[in-house]
Design a binder for these strands. Structure first.
Lengths: 337, 337
DNA sequence: GTGAAAGCGCTAACAT
DNA sequence: ATGTTAGCGCTTTCAC
């Protein structure tokens, strides 16, 4: 027994058109009937069906958010920001996790179109590039968050990952480290490549030779940090510092170090990336590169809504990350032999 | 230039009715035309509009998830489980955060109705009880997750919080503690009350007298854990163990202890509740009561979908929590005077 | 086995 | 200022 616009119209002795007018705050309705209708709406606790309106207007006021995994501590803050901003602007958000799985990504992308979401905020793998480009060029509003896929034409909101990698490495160098390892992030992701390049550039700029053994491939999980950290810590020529592509892997390194009775930061320093909630909680707290996650979420939503409103000078947004000094990095002590 | 069912119909020289039939796998279509139509659908990359279908069927295949805050580490896993299960069953989920704010809760509830979600999974404050009951009695499918509001008629998925409180406290008692404090969770929430009562019961069953000074009121944040922990640690007669209503507050107590140079667990033991991701990461790792969050999310979705499918023997689900032994609790050493 | 047509709840010309 | 009507894209009864 859902109550509809014509119920209201009948009760008020007007046409549905008039009711629709007051619903949408159109000007050309007499104050008197407007009041009458509003009162009736109130009384009957009438909620117009957004779905019917959507069919008529071809606009649903919902946006889709597609991320790898809400369970990764990096994403909740972004999701919160997006939901919050969207809500303020009158939009709802539908959430989907991809687990970075291509099949899932494609499936979700299809569903999102069927659902008639007005636009999409996405963090996807490279593989979907062509499909996304196709969608985007068909005027389907999309913005990328966190990841910037090279060749993808829709605007993106990211931080300058090259700079982050550079900063992190330089910070280690500034603390007298020269034997600096890097645990690389998810392969095939531009972020990882950029951070790696920043790392390389910093070394080069300070005349530190690149050591292939010091570059290991992680996958951004705690487990992978543990595995790769262990390798690094067991090298014949141990590094004195590590730059990890994210904080989660730092935790893994912590575990490896604990197991090997290696102390952080006195035996080995480590700097992370992302500044997730955990980073300030563990012991030692993690020195890391902060990404303004909340701001990024808000900005992405803003850019998307701009697109929805037909603005066409939409540009990318690149945030500059900030280094957060905490406890996991120490100035190197020259050992007295 | 969205392509619609009539585009397909035209191209196939059939009526939209027939196309609709194959779309929905109805039986009465000749194999030949079925194949022809399927082929055309494929070729044109046609995606039927769920929204139009929704209007016609009065079913949107989306469910609303209303939680306090996705940023609270307790929720992402639940959200993930719900999204995942829902997706398998052909549903999407719209996410909203309430921040436990009543105004927001009501606003979101209204939006959800307008959006024509098929049903709701909610974790709300007591204040919305009457409204939710009204909705539910109007046949709007709802299930509560994590919280069980007394007097709320819709089914809920929770863990037995009384038992959890009892178990946690008993575990401390079993480790020879008698001076046991409790940091209570969010006031006015049944979960908090139940855990508190479990705590009290355990003390009583072991002939330990209740000490009012040992019961302090938290609000489930790290900060509150810090504040209340500090109070507890500075009591003249310090407790030797604390049962904290959640793990986040344990972190706060850790911080307070660090500041006061008190060692955990040798100086004071602490047991938490929830087993969030952080609990196994911090040092010392947190002994805690695990809630099967993923299972709870799946179950809630299941119960909701059962309702959507018209089953009416829907019952509550109460999980029994499990104690996870880790490092934050030590057997008390009788001090040699 | 297939088509015609009404209807889901709303908006937006177009009339008046 | 208000009503009439067509239409958004789909499903479904009722004919044939």
């Amino acid at each position: 027994m859902k109550i509809t616009i014509s119920d209201i119209a009948k009760k008020a002795n007007v046409s549905t058109a008039t009711v629709s007018r007051v619903l949408n705050n159109k000007s050309d309705v007499s104050d008197k009937t407007r009041k009458k209708i509003k009162k009736i709406i109130e009384e009957m606790d009438y909620n117009p069906s957004i779905i019917a309106r959507g069919l008529s207007l071809n606009k649903t006021h919902t946006i889709g958010l597609i991320i790898p995994n809400i369970t990764n501590p990096y994403f909740p803050e972004i999701a919160k920001a997006i939901e919050s901003k969207a809500e303020k602007e009158g939009y709802s958000v539908i959430l989907y996790n991809t687990d970075n799985d291509y099949e899932k990504e494609m499936k979700i992308l299809k569903i999102m179109q069927q659902k008639q979401v007005d636009g999409l905020i996405v963090s996807l793998t490279e593989k979907t590039k062509d499909y996304i480009n196709k969608l985007f060029s068909k005027d389907f509003p999309i913005v990328q968050i966190d990841r910037k896929v090279i060749g993808l034409k829709c605007p993106s909101v990211i931080t300058d990952n090259f700079l982050s990698g550079y900063k992190a490495t330089k910070y280690l160098i500034d603390h007298s480290h020269t034997k600096i390892a890097h645990i690389v992030g998810l392969p095939d992701i531009q972020n990882s490549i950029d951070r790696l390049n920043g790392y390389k550039q910093a070394l080069e700029d300070h005349n530190i030779e690149l050591n292939d053994k010091y570059i290991v491939q992680g996958d951004q999980t705690i487990e992978s940090g543990y595995e790769e950290g262990k390798k690094l810590l067991q090298l014949k020529s141990t590094p004195t510092a590590i730059f990890s592509a994210n904080d989660l892997m730092v935790i893994g390194v912590y575990n490896a170090a604990k197991e090997l009775s290696i102390n952080i930061p006195s035996d080995i320093s480590i700097i992370g990336h992302d500044n997730i909630n955990i980073s300030s909680i563990v012991n030692p707290t993690i020195t890391t590169i902060d990404q303004p996650k909340y701001k990024m979420g808000e900005k992405a939503t803003e850019l998307l809504i701009d697109q929805l409103n037909g603005k066409n000078n939409i540009s990318n947004k690149v945030y500059v990350s900030k280094l957060i000094e905490r406890e996991s990095v120490a100035r190197i002590e020259r050992k007295i032999k």
